[in-house]
Simulated assay, not measured.
Amino acid sequence: MSELRDLTERLVSIPSHDDETAAGDAIASWLREHTAADVTRDDAGNVIAWRNRDADGDSLALVGHHDVVPPDETQVEDGDYVVYEDESRIYGRGTADMKGAVAAMLLAFRDADPDGPLAFASFAGEELGGVGVQQAIDEGFAPDYAVVGEGSTGYSADGTLDVAVAHKGRRASTVTAAGEAAHASEVESGENAVYRACDAVDVLRDLDAPEADVLGQHLAGSVAVTEIEGGSAWNVIPESCEVTVDERTVPGERADVGAVEAVEGVSWTVEQDLPPMACDDAAFADGVLDAVREVQDGAGEHVAKPHATDAGWLAAAGTTCLVCGPAEQGEAHTADESVSLDVLERCKGVYRRAADAVPGGQS
């Protein structure tokens, strides 16, 4: 436990919200010191290590990220992140999301005795939409299977480590309505962009968001208007209006948000599209859940996450993914972010068991 605690605290103490270089350097240095793995860095800031890369059989990757969201002012002191332990939890920016899981994966990667190819990857830019993982995929990172260490704790019961077999994605888009400005005393001489935007909103309200079922888990998508901005003055017919749309996507079909373009003067632009994830191998999902139940007296369930992760990008590229990690719902990105040392230890055990086994539930 002390080794896991010390490594977690070391990684958490390194600032990595503006620049992930130092955190990536620390991870790469640890791997080179404690393993004989082939360790590489790329210009995105990713750290990728392989053991038995040329061995026969399917490959498995233990996947995390070392960037974090900006810290609360209470989480920084003299340029470093504040880290402290209290009642069997470690507190500090990145403890839950997700340097604690990275530390557990590093130790499992070192201690595993795999027959097939085993990778460890810690990506940069996850909090910016998966910048690092996308570059790694473009440069050939393509494991057959992956366990992604994002949070999956507390879904079936408080404090229980679960296995997420699916998660939603997020598509953020802007609907732009164009009109023609005119003096408000001469309404008929202009084209009101706000009215056109309202017609587009009516289209959005009538859309049916798709739903999906993955290995017994049900996911429901959603479409929501979250911002409207238009007009320049009280006495001017507005010539433009923008509507921000937040869409939670599920594996399979998408809502037809582009239908708004049937409204005259309206266009639709996708700003960000984080893909959902669905595990496509029931035996792999069952095998990792068995490992979870081994480390916590039979507890743990298959669950679905509402949040997008790097697993979505990997799954879209052909990797069979699961999410299993120590962060609890609502814990990440908070001023008092923390992680349970006990759950971290359980995660390390699961990662080690997954790394030792051939993916897909085979022996």
Rank of each mutant, 00 (worst) to 15 (best):
E139M: 10
D144I: 05
P114H: 11
Q135T: 13
V147G: 00
E150Q: 03
P117D: 14
E139L: 11
G129Q: 14
L106Y: 05
V163F: 02
M105P: 01
T160S: 10
V163M: 03
L118M: 10
K168S: 12
G149H: 01
D144M: 09
K99A: 06
S152R: 00
P143V: 04
G100I: 07
A108T: 13
F123R: 08
G100F: 04
A157V: 12
G130V: 05
A121P: 13
G132E: 06
D115P: 01
S156E: 12
F141G: 05
A108Q: 10
D144F: 10
F120Q: 06
D115H: 14
G116W: 07
V131Q: 14
Y145K: 00
E139T: 14
V133H: 05
L118G: 07
A104P: 00
Q135P: 06
G129N: 13
L107H: 07
L118Q: 07
E127Q: 15
A112N: 11
G130F: 04
M98N: 13
L128P: 08
A166C: 14
D113I: 11
D97Y: 05
G129L: 13
E139K: 11
G149L: 00
K99Q: 07
D162Q: 09
V165E: 00
E139V: 02
G149P: 01
P143F: 02
V148Q: 00
R110G: 13
Q134P: 04
L107K: 02
Q135C: 08
G151P: 03
A124M: 10
L106G: 05
Y155G: 02
V165G: 05
A157M: 07
A124D: 12
G149N: 00
I137V: 15
A101W: 02
G149T: 00
L161I: 01
A112C: 11
V148H: 01
M98Y: 09
